[in-house]
Design a protein around this nucleic acid. Structure first.
Lengths: 204, 204
DNA sequence: AGCAATCTTGCGCGGCAGGCAAATTTGCGC
DNA sequence: GCGCAAATTTGCCTGCCGCGCAAGATTGCT
């Protein structure tokens, strides 16, 4: 069995090249000044080939997020089946953050900041997260007991992903300190861990 | 000051007509068999006017959700400033559900079920929720104390909206029992209320 | 080398977002 | 009522996009 044949490696390279070109050009020129054709040209493929990989330039821009979230699914599967669900999610999120922190170079941060100005992209960012939401919920189903497992696993998946998304957005906008701290604070706001001093929520 | 001049009322009526036409036609014919022009025709306006109201047919389809979420913002503002944030959110969500439960006629449910088959629409559903997310976060800012208020209010807003969205989706797919029950269960999963028996989370 | 499976590319069609300006409708003071 | 200014609708138009299709190029296996 092949780890990765030439075919697969070429496809992955093309996909990545398209993603990077899309993000870079959108940051440099502004989203609406960049055509799909320009992205394809920058990645040395035809416009038609772009469509074979992504259904829109926005999807191409957020491909990196998709990859990272799929990696998080693996990190979840690697954990013992009898852990508390939220513990599993938190650990996976923190491990992922540490893993990819190096790849989040200043260039990446700057590009994401510029791209952020386009309000329409918010929806597509969220869309990337929603794509894996069902897979994540399916993974959590096995780790829940009690009634309403279907609903509750979906709620857990959705809230966890929403929390990570917001933490990332906040860090992109105001990166004071490590991303990991921000993710921990965000996760703690949803599920205060015993031992971590929970934040005061509300006057009084 | 006018409650609503003729101008405003006409605009609201047109917007609503376009929304209803979009949802109905998408449910009947399938999203990709419905053109913007067809929606505009059904609402007795020109295709160009459609674009004055919505930037895509998907946005038109989920306009109803947008309206309901804005109503929820009002319900939040109406509550005392010294309540616990999550309590405020829960009360508003439940009040909203009760308010609009009558309007969620069987027709609406059937339409939403048919429309749900189009996987691409998921992203647009989420987009509708994300649009109000920042407004909701801003509203919560005043109700939080302690450090990292900006981050934490956004996390609360995002998790609350994600929970409501998932509960609604689950109910659309499997409406066993009142929507209100499902919303309560979903809210309880993320913030177990003292007094409500929390669900067993994990084996053991 | 040869063959089948897969991927890339060019072409073309229906559709869509949105700028622009003319025509219509509404609001308001008189 | 009347007429004017502001707002809205509409038609026209342009560039762009998603995707079906089929021909050509590349890869994998024997």
């Amino acid at each position: 069995m092949h780890e990765a044949g030439l075919r697969e490696r070429k496809k992955a390279a093309t996909r990545l090249a398209l993603h990077e070109a899309a993000l870079r050009l959108a940051a440099e020129e502004g989203l609406d000044r960049v055509t799909v054709e320009a992205i394809a040209d920058a990645a040395d493929v035809s416009r038609r080939t772009f469509s074979n990989y992504f259904s829109s330039k926005e999807e191409a821009i957020f491909y990196g997020d998709t990859v990272r979230l799929r990696r998080m699914l693996e990190l979840i599967r690697d954990q013992p089946a009898d852990e508390q669900p939220w513990t599993v999610l938190s650990r996976a999120a923190e491990a992922l953050t540490i893993e990819v922190y190096g790849e989040l170079a200043p260039t990446w941060l700057a590009q994401r900041r510029r791209v952020r100005r386009h309000p329409g992209l918010l929806a597509h960012h969220v869309a990337a997260y929603t794509t894996v939401e069902r897979e994540l919920a399916a993974e959590l189903t096995h780790r829940l007991t009690g009634p309403e497992v279907a609903l509750r696993s979906r709620v857990l998946a959705a809230t966890c992903l929403a929390t990570l998304r917001v933490a990332l957005q906040q860090w992109i906008e105001h990166p004071d300190g490590p991303l990991l701290d921000m993710i921990r604070t965000a996760l703690a706001e949803v599920r205060p861990t015993p031992g971590t001093p929970g934040p005061a929520t509300g006057p009084g």
